[in-house]
Design a protein around this nucleic acid. Structure first.
Lengths: 229, 229
DNA sequence: TCAAAAGTGTTGAGCGTACACCCATGC
DNA sequence: GCATGGGTGTACGCTCAACACTTTTGA
């Protein structure tokens, strides 16, 4: 079976930049390519957009097929349409970025463990195609967006301590934050729910757990409020 | 001549949302469609991406061919990849948004004047395809971005008065700004060059003209400065 | 001389920032 | 009892917001 068009068409793909947060560093999930071109190089998970699925669905499908990740934060990043991105033929790719919580989402068996691995986002191996620049743009987007949107929580477990949250911002923004000011700020934003629980299994005083509360956040922002760290 | 592929491929297009600023309202440039589907409806200028041009180049080319506009601010907006955007077949479009200065850039003869017109962005006619939602997203992006990036100047003549600049922000942000505070703020951002000229042909005291100075802006921002209105 | 818009300072409130010590817990 | 991080308050400076009158010009 073959498909014929009057004019040549670019192939359309999706690629996903997947960020996770380790104790103290930001990680990106990469796949080792099993085929040419760039066989053996690390690359972003991704693949061709089927003609009968939306581009968003293609991104979610590739994410699931190549890494086993489902129901994670996923948002369109940018479309890369230069001419020689792929040595084989003209390929335009719509890049997405995903945020996952490394604790809840262990990589599933679906992804051949040999071929998927987390890398320190600040110390990446050589990548296939233009994936290096796609990741850089995703990093810039994350840094910018985390300051005015409550997306950082996607990188943490559902229940977290304020110290974890602070480390998250310090890691992403690459600068230290003052503990007292940070706590004052996030609590006054009135979007966290204080739980009657504390963390367990720590060798020091256990910290109180909090949970992001969508409804509270919506209410605060509706009152003309601006999330801003 | 025909082009054959193993799997069916979506067609790839670009569409441009073009904003201009009239005395007191934000305008969008639309094209009246001469062919089906949606013949006779207004639509965003755009067209197919050629296989031998980048997506950015395609956007610039379509802008030039359909409206005569060249050398204007143009930036990628978002990629729309839903299934039934176009009744003929699967079409994915990369949308761009452009900012033009209505005074310097009169529509050229290149664009059949009958078929291109500026509409009040707040009062658009029925549009073809999903172009209405593309414009809404472009508006949101403009509103957001104008507050932390000096892109508003693209909508004004090269030399402008502070009142024109203030009207620009008031129009885009849809709220009144205090004159003294506004002037204090933009001058202290140290990105405007005060000229030894005043506006002409006004029936009242002539206002001083200013010009956006890229170098000053770069210098100010490098000093850890943040543009923010 | 009138109309229309240009241009100009001050004050109070709230927010961001800087900063240091005691507390609870597990080992 | 000691090491480790959890948790808390205050003071200062700066930025933002509110606010009204005089000046210049052309008609």
């Amino acid at each position: 079976m073959a498909f014929t068009y009057e004019f040549p068409r670019a192939a359309l793909t999706v690629d996903c930049v997947i960020f996770g947060l380790d104790e103290a560093c930001l990680k990106a999930l990469l796949i080792k390519r099993g085929i040419d071109p760039f066989r053996g190089r690390w690359a972003l998970p991704g693949g061709f957009v089927h003609v009968d699925e939306t581009v968003d669905d293609a991104a979610r499908r590739e994410l699931r097929e190549e890494t086993g990740l489902q129901r994670v934060f996923l948002e369109q990043l940018y479309t890369f349409g230069d001419l020689n991105r792929d040595p084989r033929e003209r390929v335009v790719t719509v890049a997405y970025f995903a945020l996952v919580n490394l604790h809840d989402h262990r990589l599933k068996a679906a992804s051949d463990a040999e071929n998927a691995a987390w890398f320190d986002a600040a110390d990446l191996p050589r990548l296939a195609f233009d994936h290096e620049s796609i990741i850089q743009i995703a990093l810039a987007r994350l840094k910018g967006k985390v300051r005015y949107c409550p997306i950082g929580f996607e990188l943490l477990p559902r229940k977290f301590t304020l110290s974890q949250l602070q480390r998250l911002y310090e890691t992403i923004l690459e600068r230290p934050l003052d503990k007292r000011n940070f706590r004052k700020k996030v609590l006054q934003l009135d979007m966290l729910e204080e739980l009657d629980e504390v963390e367990t299994d720590v060798a020091h005083r256990a910290a109180r757990l909090y949970r992001f509360n969508e409804a509270k956040y919506a209410k605060s922002t509706k009152q003309g409020f601006n999330f801003e760290i």
